[in-house]
């Protein structure tokens, strides 16, 4: 995938040589190389993507075999992906790459980051470089996040 932002050790990088290919629908012949496959079609050695209807808990036993999880935002106004990401990080203990795909836009990136995403496949008609500006968000977060488990009242 291109047009990608990835956080490495907290630093944002723009990637144009990402090896993963997103497979939205299974055709007879799959592309070569590492694939991001729908939950129902996952096979070993590949990544997986979740739709908003998929239960993250269903991945629990498989996490050790996965190398990438992507969460799809069919619309940026569908907020289920935030809870999926937060649970993957804080409850299921997923430490690998967590990628936002679909309607991924600058003005939601900071929320995604706080919910645990560390890579962002920015919608193709938008500039990933421009979207970088949305990654930081506010300096203040009252509640908890996947990055900072202590709410502000335990830090202020």
């Amino acid at each position: 995938m291109n047009n990608l932002i990835r956080l490495v050790d907290g630093q944002a990088q723009l990637l144009s040589d990402d090896p993963w290919t997103l497979v939205r629908e299974i055709e007879d012949e799959l592309p070569t190389g590492p694939l991001i496959l729908p939950l129902a079609h996952w096979r070993e050695g590949h990544g997986i993507w979740l739709s908003p209807d998929d239960e993250v808990e269903s991945l629990e036993l498989r996490l050790g075999e996965l190398s990438l999880i992507a969460i799809d935002f069919p619309s940026f106004r569908d907020g289920r992906g935030y809870s999926q990401a937060y649970l993957l990080r804080t409850r299921l203990g997923w430490q690998g790459e967590l990628r936002a795909i679909g309607d991924v836009l600058r003005d939601q990136l900071s929320h995604m980051r706080q919910c645990g995403f560390d890579s962002f496949a920015v919608r193709e008609d938008k500039s990933a470089e421009d979207a970088l500006k949305g990654l930081a968000g506010m300096s203040v977060l009252y509640g908890r996040s996947a990055i900072e488990p202590r709410p502000l009242f335990r830090r202020r």
């Binding site: 940026f76 106004r77 569908d78 907020g79 935030y82 809870s83 937060y86 939601q108 900071s110 929320h111 995604m112 706080q114 919910c115 506010m138 977060l141 009252y142 509640g143 996040s145 709410p151 502000l152 009242f153």
Partner: peptide, 14 residues
């Protein structure tokens, strides 16, 4: 306390 907690709580904005 609820006002603060719910303000720009990233998981629950959409």
């Amino acid at each position: 306390i609820l006002r603060q907690w719910s303000t720009i709580n990233p998981e629950f904005l959409y």
